[in-house]
Design a protein around this nucleic acid. Structure first.
Length: 929
RNA sequence: GGGCGAUUAGCUCAGCUGGUUAGAGCAUCGUGUUGAUAACGCGAGGGUCACUGGUUCGAAUCCAGUAUCGCCCA
């Protein structure tokens, strides 16, 4: 008879290894068969509503690892709230329109030599987007993200597009929408505006010129007669559009005197300037701050008009003269200066890139093209001829630099001001209302408030028009005179049509058909109208989601309780949603905003662009979703989040530790039926009471962490609980009791009662994080099989009944366990001397006085001490005086071959041979299994 | 260049309103067990709290600057 077979050793089919990559998908199928999402929603049908509104990811590829992180964090919160009894409908969204898709599709079509109409191109874009919605939906599901996929929203759905137009109608109605010029990248051969993403930077040789601008009243600014500001530029063709000279307000400027003329340039650049322009014998003198020239005026070098000096912070001393040629129609910074100083956004170019005759452009420039071909730019040459002739050109050189080129025609692009639509953000105090409203929003982390406040304060009026096809059209019509029809009622009527047919009708139908049955404002009635070709900024699309998704759904609510996105969205979705909410409904669309940082590599640097590292799926296929979720849980997401194989391996370690804890508990609960075998409250063994108190503390701490959305604290707490509280202390001590005691002995049942409580608690605390594993563990608890009809996700948040433990007892045990560390040190000493191997080989001798609180505590718990220290004997001897002393030595007596404890003598247990008296009793109390 | 942040052991985190030799877990090393075994126990080493200055009797903790990294803007 092998005594080992008489022990109550752990028994479970729960696999020690997770094998997540292979097994998780099976559980997903199981959940789908159960219709788990619906069951969870049904469970809390009468609970309070908690609404997390999903920010729609862009649908142009696999799920990015950052998006996976985002969705997992949302899932943590929703699952937690659901376990707390909240109704948590979650409608995932998809952001479908936009340049990246249009650009990619255009490239593919171009490669296939297909030339499509805008309507056809849009069909291709829609198909492209739909394809990746499918891909991403599958990948989100694989991550364990629980959502109402039946009710997902897509910004390209007709109903959604109609909502965008209706929102836009409100903008128009409130008088916020106006038309103005703004510079955009323009490809002359393609006659189209380009976005940043359509720009390629190539090496390019440009002329580099120094041009003097005569100061009108030099004496007013302490300058001699014949003074000039000298500008430097590499685009001579923009000079006809020059309207100002910019200087930095806080930069030092000086006068360079040369042959009777005085040139004003930045002091740090003066020497370089003299060298560049070969001004032999030039001298410098005087110092001026840039702001001293505020209000000064220069004359344009070849057009009879003023070019005022303006102050601008973006002026640098990296190149040039510190005096910057400013053409508001040909550059973004110039444009901003233009807005600041009320200059015209002037751009005398037609669509083909030729100067127009507007009465200001010199006659010999009219019709000249600014397009550079074969290294020749007619406009540059013509301008150089003019300023060369009239003596305002100081120097001209070759200049090699990176210059933006059109991705299609490969020609240099130009910056050209065009009519755009804007939303005025200061109309009727709107901006201030938005800033005030931010006060009512809660931010996690708190610094998010600064971030969005800064963005709202500083952003210029919202340019909402894009020269693209894949988007919601700006519903404007134009007369032959160029007057724009943008009318709220007309837009609403169009929205009604779009709700039925989608925005494709805008691209397919003629204006007459589009406007059929729609009453026009008197000024436009009967006129021939052309429809506009611009589309809306996609931030309007996604910024309307709260209106399109939440506002009218009877089972949802507005505003949302929570938005949760990456920190880049302070300037993106959080802000666009805030503006639309304030304009359309007078309130922010969210009560609370949580932001997470960005994923960086193992060194804390921007993640490399290699595809494998960016794709969520690559990591899931390698480690499994629960590991991925635990990785998300492990780090404080408010800062950067680190990602590397090393990080995943560490998380995998923690996972194994947790899984093993559950494995041990399941194994030791195999013969425990909670209904019949539980020990009543108040009768639990002291150590079990201590363990339950620890568990209650864990629940409290984890609950607080979940409430604050500080999941990394949960990770730390659980890790320590499994590794230390359970594995190192509780489980380790319990082994003797669980394995060798009689199966039905009260001490053993007491421990099983506690373990069952702890197991139930642990699986629930972790259910929002390790969704697969906790569900799996619970199945094994119920059926010792992989699947069960019940799910951990239908359980409530755990509570430890305080009647299960006595605080005073728990405190006593806590102190004894602390003392245990000193015992372990002693035992390690014996082990080093090869006196003992396992701790059961030892006996512990403690001497102390009755006045010593610790000693009397130990005395009170004397019967438990050997078990708590995992030794064979503990002797307590009263001493007359002195400190408490502790010794350890090899135990006396004989070793029981069953329990491995040393006892004074063995007794006969019949066929089992000689064992300790306690083991004999245990053997006799239970039949062999 | 501007705005918002971050920087504590190899890794992930604690360290509240400044106060004794800066704490955990994981990892590492040593070791014991072989009745949680692709497990478990015991022990040990490891940090000038990014750097520099300042405030203070006293600073990881407050202030300023520098460096590095991230996000946004230009």
């Amino acid at each position: 008879m092998n005594l080992k077979d008489t022990l109550n050793l752990p028994r479970t089919q729960f696999p020690m290894r997770g094998n997540l990559v292979q097994r998780e998908p099976e559980r997903l199928t199981h959940w789908e068969n159960l219709d788990l999402y619906a069951k969870i929603q049904a469970k809390n049908a009468d609970g309070p509503l908690f609404l997390l509104h999903d920010g729609p990811p862009f649908t142009n590829g696999d799920v990015h690892i950052g998006t996976a992180l985002n969705k997992i964090l949302k899932d943590f919160i929703l699952r937690y709230k659901s376990m707390r009894g909240y109704r948590t409908p979650y409608l995932p969204g998809w952001d479908c329109h936009g340049l990246p898709i249009e650009h990619k599709v255009s490239r593919e079509l171009r490669a296939a030599k297909k030339d499509l109409t805008p309507a056809q191109l849009r069909e291709e874009c829609a198909a492209f987007s739909e394809k990746y919605i499918g891909v991403q939906r599958g990948q989100f599901k694989r991550l364990g993200v629980l959502a109402d996929w039946e009710r997902e929203y897509k910004t390209k759905n007709p109903a959604y597009e109609a909502e965008i137009l209706k929102t836009f109608a409100t903008f128009v109605e409130k008088g916020l929408v106006y038309r103005s010029k703004k510079p955009v990248y323009w490809s002359i051969p393609c006659e189209t505006a380009l976005a940043e993403a359509e720009i390629e930077y190539h090496d390019h040789v440009s002329p580099s010129i120094w041009v003097k601008f005569r100061v009108s009243e030099p004496q007013k600014f302490g300058l001699p007669e014949d003074s000039f500001f000298v500008i430097w530029t590499t685009t001579p063709w923009t000079l006809p559009a020059n309207l100002a000279v910019a200087v930095h307000p806080d930069l030092q400027y000086t006068q360079v005197a040369h042959q009777g003329e005085t040139y004003v340039v930045a002091l740090p650049l003066a020497e370089q300037f003299i060298a560049d322009c070969a001004l032999e014998g030039a001298t410098t003198k005087g110092q001026h701050l840039g702001k001293d020239f505020d209000g000064a005026e220069t004359r344009h070098p070849f057009i009879d008009r003023a070019s005022p000096v303006v102050l601008a912070d973006y002026v640098t001393t990296e190149a040039g003269t510190g005096c910057v040629h400013t053409a508001p129609g040909h550059g973004l910074e110039d444009y901003l200066s233009g807005l600041k100083y009320g200059l015209e956004i002037y751009c005398p170019l037609d669509d083909k890139g030729c100067y127009v005759d507007d009465g200001q452009v010199p006659e010999n420039l009219v019709g000249v093209s600014v397009l550079e071909q074969n290294g020749k730019c007619p406009a540059n040459d013509a301008v150089l001829a003019i300023i060369g002739d009239n003596g305002t050109l100081l120097q001209c050189k070759r200049f090699e630099h990176q210059y933006p080129h059109c991705w299609r025609s490969k020609t240099p692009v130009v910056f050209r001001a065009m009519d755009q639509w804007f939303v005025s953000l200061d109309h009727n105090g709107l901006r201030q209302q938005v800033l005030d409203a931010i006060d009512g929003v809660q931010f996690i982390p708190e610094r998010g408030e600064n971030r969005i406040r800064g963005a709202v304060e500083t952003r210029p009026d919202w340019c909402i028009s894009r020269q693209r096809s894949w988007g919601v059209p700006i519903p404007a019509f134009y007369t032959e005179d160029g007057d724009a029809l943008l009318d709220a009622e007309v837009i609403r009527a169009l929205a009604a049509k779009v709700a039925l047919h989608g925005t494709n009708i805008w691209f397919e139908q003629e204006p007459e058909q589009l406007l059929e049955g729609i009453e026009l404002p008197a000024a436009f009635a009967g006129k021939t109208l052309k429809k506009g070709t611009d589309t809306l900024d996609v931030w309007i699309d996604s910024g309307c989601s709260h209106l399109a998704v939440l506002k009218h759904a009877p089972d949802l609510k507005w505003p949302a309780d929570l938005y949760l996105e990456g920190s880049d969205q302070h300037r993106g979705w959080f802000q666009s949603s805030l503006w639309t909410g304030m304009i359309a409904a007078g309130e922010p669309p969210y009560k609370k905003i949580i932001t997470h940082g960005f994923i960086v590599d193992g060194k804390g640097e921007k993640i490399s662009k290699s595809k494998g590292a960016m794709s969520s799926d690559g990591w899931v296929e390698k480690y499994g979703a629960d590991i991925m979720r635990l990785w998300v849980c492990s780090q404080d997401y408010r800062g950067d989040i680190r990602l590397s194989d090393g990080h995943f391996k560490l998380v995998t370690n923690t996972y194994r530790s947790i899984r093993n804890t559950l494995y041990f508990q399941l194994g030791n609960l195999s013969d425990f039926d909670p209904a019949n075998d539980s020990v009543p409250d108040g009768e639990l063994d002291p150590l079990d009471q201590w363990a339950l108190k620890q568990t209650a503390d864990l629940v409290a701490a984890c609950t607080e962490a979940f409430e604050l959305a500080e999941f990394h604290r949960v990770y730390q707490l659980i890790d320590r609980f499994c590794g230390v509280t359970l594995s190192r202390i509780y489980h380790d001590i319990l082994k003797d009791r669980l394995y060798t005691f009689g199966r039905d002995w009260k001490e053993r049942r007491s421990s099983q009662t506690a373990i069952h409580q702890i197991f139930t608690t642990l699986t629930r605390l972790l259910a929002p994080i390790l969704t697969f594993t906790c569900d799996e563990a619970l199945s094994y608890a119920a059926t010792d099989g992989d699947f069960a009809d019940d799910s951990v996700h239908l359980q409530g948040w755990p509570v430890i009944d305080s009647g299960l433990y006595d605080d005073a007892v728990a405190t006593d045990i806590e102190q004894i366990l602390e003392f245990r560390n000193r015992v372990n040190e002693k035992l390690e000493g014996l082990r080093e001397q090869k006196v003992i191997g396992k701790s059961l080989d030892a006996r512990v001798l403690i001497r102390g006085t009755e006045s010593d609180a610790l000693f009397t505590l130990l005395q009170r718990y004397q019967p438990q001490l050997a078990e708590l220290f995992i030794v064979s004997e503990v002797s307590l001897d009263a001493a007359a005086d002195g400190e408490l002393t502790l010794d350890a030595e090899h135990a006396d007596g004989v070793r029981c071959p069953r329990s491995w404890r040393w006892v004074p003598e063995l007794v006969s247990a019949g066929e089992y041979g000689e064992v300790s008296p306690r083991d004999r009793d245990a053997l006799l109390s239970q039949p062999l299994t």
